[in-house]
């Protein structure tokens, strides 16, 4: 039952809590991670993930905010100087629409910042936060 209820609930929740911005592509990706996650996604947990300083990954990138800045609404900058478009979906409309790309960046950046791969729970929380912004 759970496998059916959670995605269903998620979809309903999505339309309720993340109004407007998320298109079908983003919904699809959220659903993908929600299906593997233990709990329903939480925007607050997503925010915490984003702002926390870990210090367990690569020394030059202790937190997401090192490059992305503290606000998902603002442009970030890579260590080399390339501008990164804002993480918030409301600012960068084509974000979180390609699962392969999303997986690639979770893999790279979770390893770089936290020192391990992220769990599906963390991924769905993180995405929910960015889509809500």
């Amino acid at each position: 039952m759970r496998t059916l209820i959670i995605p269903l609930a998620a979809t309903i929740l999505l339309s309720a809590t993340l109004p407007g911005v998320a298109g079908p592509a983003q919904d699809e990706i959220l659903k993908h991670f929600q299906e593997q996650a233990k709990m329903e996604f939480s925007v607050e947990r997503g925010q915490e993930l984003f702002t926390k300083s870990y210090g367990t990954g690569k020394p030059k990138t202790p937190s997401c905010t090192t490059c992305h800045t503290k606000s998902p609404l603002k442009s970030g900058k890579t260590r080399v100087g390339k501008v990164i478009a804002p993480m918030a979906l409301s600012r960068t409309k084509d974000r979180y629409s390609d699962l392969k790309k999303v997986e690639k960046w979770f893999r790279r950046n979770c390893k770089g910042v936290i020192g391990r791969e992220c769990t599906p729970q963390e991924k769905v929380d993180f995405l929910a936060f960015m889509i809500s912004k």
Partner: peptide, 12 residues
């Protein structure tokens, strides 16, 4: 690429 100038830049 997994340790690319101090960052994980791994690719398929």
């Amino acid at each position: 690429l997994s340790d690319h100038f101090g960052e994980d830049a791994s690719l398929d």
